[in-house]
Design a protein around this nucleic acid. Structure first.
Lengths: 106, 106
DNA sequence: ATCTTGATTTGACGAGTGTCAAACTAGGTG
DNA sequence: CACCTAGTTTGACACTCGTCAAATCAAGAT
């Protein structure tokens, strides 16, 4: 990761992703969804695991969805969420590169 | 990354880190600092590269510092910033694990 | 059609955030 | 000392965010 490669435009897009992760509730939501490993998680399961109200959970899921970190699908009465691995990988890679770059040379 | 391993307390700490990255200016700042690879970057260099005012840049650097992502040191008239690789690695790892977990199994 | 359950949307409110101008601190120079 | 440059802190303001209650939408059951 080089400074010149991170233009304002690119930074805005990436920041959107990190911003979505910048809330404990959303981080836990993503964690629970990711733990399903390919399977989806019903929203009802998620709301049950949190103290926050259903509208609040729905709001957080929307933020994660708008950031492209998760995707949702309705099947009958229930809505299922799953992670978007490539999106998470992109964010991870940015930090990983930074860490390595910082440790490798001088 | 398993859902049960991400307790509320842990989530709060990690979210703090991601939250600090959730702003384009801070992401670019971190990028510029990380690009120095072991060396430090003078604040004067950073302020010159941004359209925002010096107080604003100083504020963003403080947010990154409070999140433990960067460290600062004063030498004479100037203040130098450097990344904290372990902190970035921790955040990166969380996302990396998520992505892999989600892609590996069902 | 009516009712029930699951999920999202709307509206509102308090708390937090990004930004700048102005004031202030830290260190060096005349 | 006075002065200057580098950087941070303070105060203020508009804007966003997290949260919930109430209303609404979606799909099935009676």
């Amino acid at each position: 990761m080089v400074a010149e490669s991170l233009t304002e435009t690119v930074a805005v897009g990436l920041a959107k992703g990190f911003k979505a992760l910048g809330d404990p509730a959303r981080l836990r939501l993503l964690s629970m969804i990711a733990a399903r490993a390919g399977d989806e998680v019903c929203v009802c399961e998620l709301t049950d695991a949190f103290t926050q109200s259903a509208p609040t959970i729905s709001h957080h899921l929307k933020v994660l969805r708008d950031a492209g970190l998760v995707a949702s699908e309705r099947r009958g009465t229930w809505v299922y969420y799953r992670v978007v691995p490539s999106a998470l990988a992109a964010l991870s890679q940015l930090l990983d590169t930074s860490a390595m770059t910082a440790g490798v040379n001088g």
